[in-house]
Write a protein that binds this DNA or RNA. Structure first.
Length: 280
DNA sequence: TTTACTGTTCACCA
DNA sequence: GTGGTGAACAGTAA
């Protein structure tokens, strides 16, 4: 489900509902979603922690506790976070349930649902290295001042891989996935298969400008009320009507009217406009 | 019955 | 070391 805009949307919806709550019980229904440490230690360390905030880094979410410990999670393809009443019947594909208690003693659940079970959780103590999660190797955030044309050029222009693969590489920029890579390349008029080493300075400049602009814009367009998020069970919050390219293969290009083509780049489905995004 | 799928990692080969 | 391909993870939906 989620790329940066969706993960950020989940963060914005869930954070105010769980901040200040204390974890009183931890239920792991499918042990495979707990990556670190062992399931027993995971549950034991999580119990009693008080939630201070949720912070996003790339596509990772970090539930930060008072005292600095962190519950890190990655939703991968189909993970969902849902805050529910304690007594609500458990949804299908629920793999982890945290019982939370707020300052007034009210209880609720923070549930993790994941149809395909690719998502993962890590519990990190305050002093524990985040290397175990892989977060330490992420490239800069799209909104970071580090993400400049010079950085992109320096990182990619000696490589022969397709620019789309470069954008999908989380060690280059954190947070771009298959859908937004296509949107970014359409927005900048760059063919997804262009080798990085053939891009010109102005391409890197366009990318450095469009990556944050597009991700910020589409994050805002994902905005959803907590009620609507809850009603859709944490699912339907991607505003697909705003996607210009993804899912529109075979349709007319919104810019020039030519037919949008669907191909595969680096094993991923890709849509582009052969007229607006010329091969080089 | 077959195929594709928003993510990531790893094995294998040229 | 670089790059390309495919598989693995697992379930659903078209």
């Amino acid at each position: 489900m989620p790329e940066l805009p969706e993960v950020e949307t989940v963060r914005r919806v869930v954070e105010p509902q769980i901040t200040g709550c204390t974890v009183t019980e931890v239920l792991v229904l499918h042990t495979q979603v707990v990556a670190h440490p062992s399931v027993d230690v995971f549950c034991e360390k999580l119990r009693g922690q008080r939630i201070r905030a949720i912070v996003r880094r790339g596509k990772f979410l970090q539930i930060v506790m008072e005292g600095g410990a962190r519950l890190v999670l990655h939703l991968r393809m189909t993970g969902q976070l849902l805050v529910t009443p304690e007594e609500q019947e458990r949804e299908k594909h629920t793999h982890l349930v945290l019982t939370l208690e707020d300052a007034g003693g009210e209880r609720k659940h923070l549930r993790y649902l994941d149809v395909r079970r690719f998502g993962r959780f890590w519990f990190l103590g305050a002093e524990e290295e985040e290397a175990v999660t892989g977060m330490d190797r992420l490239g800069p955030e799209p909104f970071s001042p580090e993400l400049t044309a010079a950085y992109l050029a320096r990182t990619l222009n000696h490589r022969r891989i397709a620019i789309k693969e470069g954008l999908l590489d989380q060690h280059v920029v954190a947070g771009i996935g298959n859908i937004y890579a296509d949107e970014i390349l359409f927005s900048t008029g760059i063919h997804p298969e262009t080798p990085c080493c053939r891009l010109a300075e102005e391409d890197w400049e366009k990318l450095a400008e469009r990556i944050p602009a597009l991700l910020a814009d589409l994050t805002e367009k994902n905005a959803i009320s907590p009620e609507a998020y809850f009603r859709s069970r944490g699912k339907e919050y991607r505003n697909t009507p705003y996607l210009k390219i993804y899912g529109h293969g075979g349709e007319a290009c919104p810019r020039c009217g030519d037919e949008l083509l669907k191909t595969r780049v680096g094993g991923r489905s890709s849509v582009f406009c052969p007229h607006c995004q010329k091969e080089r």
